[in-house]
Computed example of a mutant assay.
Amino acid sequence: MIEVIAETGSTNADLAARVAAGEAMAEGHWLVADRQVAGRGRQGRAWSDGAGNFMGSTAVHLQAGDPPPQTLSLVAGVATYAAVEALAPGLPGLALKWPNDLLVRSAKLAGILLERRGDAVIVGVGVNLVQAPRLPERPTACLTDLGHTVARDGFADMLQTCWAHALRLWRSGGWEQLRADWIARAHPFGTPLKVHGPEGEVLHGTFGGLDPDGALQLQLASGTRRTIHAGEVDLDRR
Rank of each mutant, 00 (worst) to 15 (best):
N100R: 09
D101F: 03
D101V: 03
D101Y: 04
D101T: 08
L102A: 06
L102I: 10
L103W: 03
V104A: 06
V104I: 11
R105N: 15
S106H: 12
A107I: 07
A107H: 05
K108S: 03
L109Q: 00
L109S: 01
A110C: 00
A110D: 00
A110W: 00
G111C: 04
I112M: 03
I112N: 00
L113K: 01
L114H: 03
L114S: 01
E115A: 11
E115V: 08
E115D: 09
E115Q: 15
E115S: 10
E115Y: 02
R116F: 04
R116G: 07
R117T: 13
R117I: 14
G118S: 09
G118C: 10
D119W: 07
D119S: 13
A120P: 02
A120T: 15
A120K: 05
V121D: 00
V121A: 05
V121Q: 11
I122A: 06
I122L: 13
I122M: 11
V123Y: 02
V123W: 01
V123A: 06
G124K: 05
G124P: 03
V125S: 05
V125I: 14
G126I: 10
V127A: 02
N128C: 10
N128E: 09
N128T: 09
N128F: 06
L129Q: 07
L129Y: 05
V130K: 11
Q131M: 10
Q131V: 11
Q131L: 13
L135Q: 15
L135G: 11
P136D: 15
E137M: 10
R138A: 15
A141W: 05
A141E: 08
A141L: 10
C142W: 02
C142P: 01
C142N: 14
T144L: 12
D145S: 15
D145C: 10
L146V: 11
G147P: 08
G147W: 09
G147A: 13
G147D: 09
H148S: 10
H148G: 05
T149N: 09
V150M: 06
V150T: 06
V150N: 04
V150D: 03
A151D: 13
A151S: 12
R152Y: 06
R152G: 07
D153Q: 12
D153L: 12
D153V: 03
D153K: 04
F155H: 04
F155D: 02
A156N: 06
D157A: 15
D157N: 08
D157S: 11
M158V: 10
L159H: 01
Q160R: 15
Q160N: 09
Q160A: 15
Q160S: 15
T161K: 14
T161D: 11
W163P: 02
A164N: 10
A164R: 14
H165N: 13
H165C: 11
H165I: 10
H165F: 07
H165Y: 07
A166L: 09
A166F: 06
R168K: 12
W170L: 08
W170F: 14
R171N: 04
R171F: 05
R171P: 00
R171V: 04
